[in-house]
Simulated assay, not measured.
Amino acid sequence: MTHRWLHLRLAAPLVAFGDVAIDHVGPTRDFPAASALTGLLANALGLRREETSAHQALQDRLVFGAMVIRPGRLLTDIQNAKLEKKDCGWTTWGQPDVRTGDTYDSPHRRRRDYLADHDCRVVLRLHDLPEGPDLDRLAEVLDRPARPLFIGRKGCLPSAQLFAGWLEGENALEALKAIGLPGRAFWPAEEGGGTVRDISDMRNWRTGLHGGHRRVSEGEIA
Results as ranks from 00 to 15, higher is better:
residue 125 R to S: 12
residue 74 L to D: 02
residue 90 W to P: 00
residue 3 H to S: 11
residue 81 A to I: 02
residue 206 R to A: 10
residue 169 G to K: 14
residue 113 D to V: 05
residue 189 A to P: 14
residue 36 A to E: 07
residue 22 I to H: 01
residue 186 F to T: 04
residue 148 P to L: 04
residue 29 R to N: 12
residue 20 V to N: 04
residue 167 L to P: 07
residue 4 R to A: 09
residue 130 P to S: 02
residue 222 A to R: 10
residue 83 L to C: 00
residue 71 P to K: 14
residue 192 G to Q: 05
residue 17 F to S: 07
residue 185 A to E: 03
residue 174 E to C: 06
residue 139 A to M: 09
residue 1 M to G: 09
residue 204 N to G: 04
residue 194 G to S: 07
residue 27 P to K: 11
residue 51 E to L: 13
residue 2 T to R: 13
residue 81 A to L: 13
residue 117 D to S: 06
residue 161 Q to Y: 03
residue 23 D to V: 11
residue 97 D to I: 05
residue 113 D to I: 06
residue 72 G to V: 15
residue 134 D to F: 06
residue 132 G to D: 09
residue 145 P to A: 11
residue 81 A to T: 07
residue 210 H to N: 09
residue 176 L to F: 08
residue 207 T to K: 09
residue 3 H to K: 15
residue 145 P to Q: 08
residue 82 K to P: 01
residue 182 P to F: 07
residue 48 R to W: 10
residue 14 L to K: 02
residue 136 D to L: 14
residue 86 K to P: 08
residue 116 A to F: 07
residue 67 M to I: 09
residue 166 W to S: 05
residue 76 T to H: 03
residue 64 F to T: 12
residue 153 R to Q: 02
residue 191 E to Y: 05
residue 162 L to W: 10
residue 139 A to Y: 09
residue 205 W to R: 07
residue 212 G to M: 11
residue 135 L to R: 12
residue 200 S to N: 06
residue 177 K to H: 13
residue 146 A to Y: 00
residue 76 T to L: 12
residue 66 A to P: 15
residue 153 R to F: 04
residue 67 M to L: 11
residue 42 A to R: 05
residue 188 P to L: 11
residue 74 L to G: 00
residue 153 R to N: 00
residue 124 L to E: 07
residue 148 P to M: 04
residue 14 L to Y: 09
residue 2 T to Q: 11
residue 39 G to Q: 03
residue 23 D to C: 05
residue 205 W to C: 02
residue 182 P to A: 09
residue 53 S to M: 14
residue 80 N to K: 12
residue 87 D to P: 14
residue 212 G to H: 13
residue 194 G to N: 04
residue 164 A to M: 09
residue 114 Y to A: 00
residue 24 H to W: 11
residue 35 S to G: 08
residue 77 D to P: 08
residue 219 G to N: 10
residue 128 D to Q: 10
residue 104 Y to H: 09
residue 135 L to M: 09
residue 60 D to H: 10
residue 108 H to C: 15
residue 152 G to N: 10
residue 133 P to W: 01
residue 107 P to A: 14
residue 168 E to H: 13
residue 179 I to P: 08
residue 139 A to G: 06
residue 200 S to Y: 07
residue 43 N to H: 00
residue 6 L to E: 01
residue 222 A to V: 08
residue 176 L to D: 00
residue 97 D to S: 08
residue 10 L to S: 02
residue 206 R to H: 13
residue 43 N to V: 00
residue 38 T to L: 03
residue 11 A to T: 13
residue 215 R to M: 11
residue 128 D to T: 02
residue 11 A to H: 12
residue 216 V to Q: 11
residue 184 R to V: 14
residue 216 V to N: 12
residue 83 L to G: 04
residue 77 D to K: 06
residue 171 N to D: 14
residue 168 E to V: 15
residue 33 A to S: 15
residue 78 I to L: 15
residue 59 Q to L: 11
residue 94 G to Y: 01
residue 204 N to R: 05
residue 105 D to R: 15
residue 209 L to H: 08
residue 207 T to C: 01
residue 146 A to G: 03
residue 176 L to M: 06
residue 111 R to Q: 15
residue 175 A to Q: 10
residue 154 K to I: 06
residue 218 E to G: 01
residue 164 A to N: 05
residue 82 K to Y: 03
residue 130 P to Y: 01
residue 190 E to V: 14
residue 193 G to A: 02
residue 29 R to F: 03
residue 94 G to T: 01
